[in-house]
Amino acid sequence: MRVITVAGPPSVGKTALILKTAKTLGDDGQKLAVVKFDCLSTDDDLLYRRAGIAVAAGLAGSVCPDHYFVSNIDDCLQWAESLGADLLIAESAGLCNRCSPHVQGALAVCVVDNLSGVHTPKKIGPMLKMADVVAITKGDIVSQAEREVFAHNVWRANPQARIVAFNGLTGQGAGELAFAMRGAPDLETLEGRRLRFPMPSAICSYCIGETCIGENHQRGNVRKMRFPEVLA
């Protein structure tokens, strides 16, 4: 089974990219299964089902979807195996720019869009920096100059990644992405494999349901801000 993690901020075009690439892979006779990880709700499963792709949706509720992802990804692989799929794609909305679902040995794709501004690549953490492929969407609505600057900034943030310009509406770039996915390593299980980057370890009272503000309510791993000195 080839396992591919596709992560990126909300609404950048992850589903559009997977659907267009699935079409190219399907034309080559590859069978695909998709798992969508999200927080509270998602309609993506409907989109995949409509395209005839086997899909499961996992809603993380109150925990970070990337944490939820690690706890479930090996089960996803077993599920995809039982369907006889050749590829498993895990789509996850990288909500906190701090977590990253990328696993060593699985192809890691990060999706970002040209609309998010030329400084975004350096603000996104390991989700982009640890990816093998960075797909940049929505180039159809910005200038050539912005596309070049944006791609350059992605390159600066992750010089090892293959950078793919992807148009989620027309599927431009799907050939290249399908090429990368077909070349992903073949895995039997994810058991024992490691995340490319550890997820934040903070466990504070707010992680487990505290809602009240104030020093007395802050327990566990709490980090306080430092402010510039006020000049007299």
Partner: peptide
């Protein structure tokens, strides 16, 4: 694929500066 991105620049009606 690496070449296609470098060889071709595009201009179209829908493109705007957004930054």
């Amino acid at each position: 694929w690496a070449a296609s991105g470098k060889l071709v620049a595009q201009l179209s009606q829908n493109m705007n500066f957004v930054v």
